[in-house]
Amino acid sequence: MNQAQIQIDRVSKVYHRDSIEIPVLRDITLTVNPGEYLALMGPSGSGKTTLLNLMAGIDKPTSGRILVGDQEVSSMGEGQLARWRADHVGFIFQLYNLIPVLTAFENVELPLLLTRLSRKERREHVETALSIVGLADRMEHYPRQLSGGQEQRVAIARAIVADPAILVADEPTGDLDAKSADEILELLKRLSGEFQKTIVMVTHDPKAAAVARRMVHLDKGVLSAAEPREMADVRGQRS
């Protein structure tokens, strides 16, 4: 599955704290087209990350269905879901989440350990992924030996190394300086355009959102498409 449509159908999510019910997402319906680059915006606590987690298959909705391609992710069991994530989803986090005791190469190799690839094939894949993010010369560096921007690029290499159809990114530029943030956004744009990845990105940053082809807005768990003017504004800010 190189490209997949994500269909979110009347999805709600309620968290339970003791006896209190906290509704986080309310009756969300959304379609993300194959190869689309979608920005999820909204204030803190609006449910952006929860929606991203549901699309990535690391959380389950309280009600409603999530389909990716022809597979209903929301009804999969733990093991099936783990295998599905390994095959179809790449993760990019705000704080990179690299494993500090592993080199850049080993961090990128992690998802490939779950495949049947030989050591040589894994090496080829990792080298390709690191070349795409421009870090082929930093393979043996540990995360502490890299800048924030470089760490995030290693994380992106890890996200794409198994060639998943979907990339989920949560505030990928949130911990970076402006220059590094621009580089990361450019890289994501390239992954969307050149490699046809479906990207769903949570961001607070209008500049980051402007890179996306579409933006949706969440507020108190309710979804609204961004106003065309808002989109125009953020694109204006970017240019």
Binding site: A56, I58, E78, G79, A82, R83, R85, A86, D87, F91, F93, N97, I99, L110, P111, L114, R158
Partner: peptide
Amino acid sequence: TEIALIRALGFRR
């Protein structure tokens, strides 16, 4: 966090 990460990447329980 690291264990949650590798679970997210597809490592099973």
